[in-house]
């Protein structure tokens, strides 16, 4: 099922204004994404890890997320040392290990995880609805914000439609295998999901026109950033400045 498990809670991070968190996350992520220094990447990883700990995520869920994101870094660890090339090669039994490849894989792992921690601490602690409204206030085009908010709203419904169709198929004895029949069945299941989404869109559109919809979704709660939010923002920007400044010391 699709859920936002990290958005529940009442820590320092959950209470902050979404716009403040978006700006802070963008600043830290940019610094980490653009760096090629080990010192910046590892300091960043430690700092964002501390932020993440402060947002008190559920440990089991957290580990699963970290694991799934690191599948790609695992692929790099398995391939880069053997394929990267470069001058520094160490022979290990019958394998030639490239030190440059190991270095690149390690750097990427630090950067990826640092950014992931930052994302989980700052953005996953808001719901998508709040993020969408926050992005709109920060200047995201209104149509795009609408698309984001509305597909988020309908996501769960469409997923349930699909699951219902899938359950019906299973009840009729459908067992997936490597066959054309399986692929055709999945296609028809998804095709039917599309048809239902299409017709639902029509109905929802009519209902909204009836209620005077003019292209704007108005959130029920419109919090203003308070003094703590500004202090928080200053703190986060200082962290990103500190990280960006490390190579110059």
């Amino acid at each position: 099922m699709i859920e936002e498990p990290f958005a529940e809670g009442n820590t320092l991070f959950h209470r902050r204004d979404t716009r403040v968190k978006l700006i802070a996350a963008a600043a830290i992520t940019l610094v980490l994404a653009l760096t090629s220094s080990f010192l910046v990447a590892s300091t960043g990883c430690i700092l964002t890890g501390m932020l993440l700990a402060l947002s008190r995520p559920t440990p089991s869920l957290l580990l699963r997320r970290i694991g799934s994101v690191n599948l790609f870094t695992l692929f790099l660890w398995l391939t880069l040392p053997l394929t990267y090339g470069g001058d520094k090669i160490v022979s290990f039994f019958f394998l030639d290990i490239s030190l440059d490849g190991l270095r690149t894989a390690a750097l990427i792992t630090l950067k990826t995880n640092g950014i992931l921690f930052c994302f989980l601490a700052l953005l996953a602690t808001s719901t998508v609805a709040n993020l969408g409204h926050g992005l709109e206030k920060l200047g995201m085009p209104r149509k795009l914000a609408f698309l984001l908010l509305f597909s988020y709203r309908q996501l769960f419904v469409i997923h349930q439609e699909y699951q219902r169709l899938q359950r019906a198929a299973r009840l009729r004895g459908f067992a997936p295998s490597n066959s054309l029949h399986t692929y055709r069945t999945y296609s028809y299941l998804f095709g039917m999901t599309l048809v239902k989404s299409w017709n639902r869109a029509e109905r929802v559109h009519q209902a909204m026109i009836l209620r005077g919809f003019n292209g704007r979704l108005i959130p029920l709660n419109q919090p203003q950033p308070c003094r703590e939010d500004y202090l928080f923002l200053i703190g986060m920007l200082l962290i990103s400045l500190l990280l960006a400044g490390i190579p110059f010391f």
């Binding site: 996501l155 699909y162 989404s197």
Partner: peptide
Amino acid sequence: RIMTVSLLSAAFFVASLI
């Protein structure tokens, strides 16, 4: 058309779960 596009966007998301 924006309603249709957002619904299809959601359907695209669901496809990635299949």
